[in-house]
C-alpha cells in the first residue's frame, strides 16, 4: 500500500516536471522576452541591456530553467514584472481568496448535490424527482456568465439586497470576504451542484437495480437502513473522482465567475497576468494550478482505493 502511494506521488511529480517544462518552453518560444514586453517602446539600447542583465536573460535557456526550477522547489517564484514585487506576495492573498470562495461553495454545493441526487433517485419519476431534475437541467444548461449576470440584475439591481460586484482589496480579511461572496457562491453552486446531482442520481439508480439491493430487501432489511448501508456506500464511490475534479476546478479559479463579479481570486489573476504579459506570474500560476489538480486527484484516487474493498485487496495482493 505504501509502495503504491509512493508510486502515485512519484507519477504526480513527473507530471509536474513535464508541466513546468512545457510552460517554460512555451514562454521561451513566444516572440520577445520579458524585457521587451515590460519595457515596450523603450526596449532598446542601454535600458534593454540593463533589464536583460537584471533579469538574468543573458544566460542560456536551460541554465535559466534549472535556476528557476530549483528556486520553485524552494518555494520562491521570483519577481513579478509589473509590480516588481515578489510573486509569492502577489499570489498569497489571491490563493487565500480563491480558497475561501472554493471552500464555501464546496461546503454548500457538494452536500446539496448529494442530497438532491439521492432524493431524485429514490423518488425516481415521482414529483420530487421531476421538480428537482427540471431545475438542475435548467441550471446546467445556462452558461455561468449569463446566470451570474442575471443574478446581479435581479438580486443586486432590482432588489438591492446585495452588492453586485465585489469591491474589496485582494488582502481583505476573511469576514469582509464572506459577506461579499454570496452571489458568486450561488452562481458557482448552480452549475456545480446540477452536474453532480445528475451523476449521483444515475449512480444511485444503478445500484438500486442491483442484485444485492434486491437481496437486501428480500432479507427483510428496512428501507432506510438498506439505503444507508447497502446503496449509498456503493453509489457514492464513483462520485469521489468527479467531486475531486470539481474541487480542483474551483481551487484553480473559476475564471468567468471571478471576472463577472470582479472577485480578486486566482482566476482573475490568470486573466490579468496574461493580458499584462507578466510571464513569470503566468509560469508560477501554471505550476500552482497543475499541482492543485495533481494533488487533489491523487487524494481522490487514494480515497477510492481505501473505500473500495475490492481494489484494496487487489493492490495488497500484488
Amino acid at each position: 500500500m505504501l509502495l503504491l502511494i509512493l508510486k502515485r506521488i512519484g507519477l504526480g511529480l513527473i507530471t509536474l516536471f513535464i508541466v513546468s517544462l512545457i510552460t517554460f518552453v512555451g514562454v521561451e518560444v513566444l516572440p520577445g522576452d520579458a524585457c521587451t514586453t515590460y519595457l515596450e517602446r523603450e526596449a532598446y539600447g542601454a535600458a534593454l541591456d540593463a533589464c536583460i542583465k537584471r533579469l538574468g536573460l543573458d544566460v542560456p535557456a536551460y541554465e535559466r530553467y534549472l535556476d528557476w526550477a530549483s528556486n520553485v522547489i524552494r518555494g520562491d517564484f521570483g519577481y513579478s514584472l509589473s509590480g516588481e514585487m515578489p510573486i509569492n506576495e502577489v499570489l498569497g492573498p489571491r490563493v487565500k481568496n480563491s480558497l475561501v470562495l472554493a471552500s464555501v461553495s464546496i461546503l454548500i454545493g457538494i452536500p446539496l448535490a448529494i442530497v438532491l441526487g439521492i432524493i431524485t433517485a429514490l423518488w425516481r419519476d415521482k414529483l420530487p424527482d421531476i421538480m428537482i431534475s427540471t431545475i438542475t437541467i435548467f441550471s446546467m444548461t445556462i452558461p455561468e456568465f449569463i446566470s451570474a449576470t442575471l443574478l446581479i440584475l435581479i438580486v443586486a439591481i432590482w432588489l438591492g439586497w446585495l452588492p453586485g460586484i465585489v469591491i474589496i482589496p485582494s488582502d481583505a480579511t476573511f469576514y469582509e470576504l464572506l459577506s461579499n461572496i454570496i452571489l458568486p457562491v450561488v452562481a458557482i453552486s448552480m452549475i456545480m451542484t446540477a452536474h453532480m446531482a445528475r451523476m449521483v442520481r444515475s449512480s444511485v439508480i444503478q445500484v438500486m437495480a442491483s442484485d444485492y439491493v434486491q437481496m437486501a430487501i428480500l432479507k427483510g432489511v428496512p428501507y432506510w437502513k438498506m439505503v444507508f448501508r447497502h446503496v449509498l456506500p456503493n453509489a457514492l464511490l464513483p462520485a469521489i473522482n468527479v467531486v475531486a475534479l470539481t474541487i480542483a476546478w474551483l481551487l484553480g479559479g473559476v475564471v468567468v465567475t471571478e471576472v463577472v463579479f470582479n472577485y480578486p481570486g486566482l482566476g482573475r489573476l490568470v486573466i490579468e497576468s496574461i493580458s499584462n504579459r507578466d510571464l513569470p506570474v503566468v509560469q508560477a500560476l501554471a505550476i500552482i494550478l497543475a499541482s492543485i489538480y495533481v494533488g487533489i486527484n491523487l487524494i481522490a484516487d487514494l480515497m477510492t482505493l481505501m473505500l473500495n474493498p475490492r481494489l484494496k485487496s487487489l493492490q495488497i495482493r500484488k
Binding site: 442491483s210 442484485d211 444485492y212 434486491q214 437481496m215 428480500l218 447497502h230 474493498p309 475490492r310
Partner: peptide, 13 residues
C-alpha cells in the same frame, strides 16, 4: 431467499 448469483447478490462493501 437464496439468490441465483451470490457473487452479485452480496453487497460488495
Amino acid at each position: 431467499m437464496i439468490p441465483q448469483n451470490a457473487g452479485q447478490a452480496l453487497t460488495p462493501n
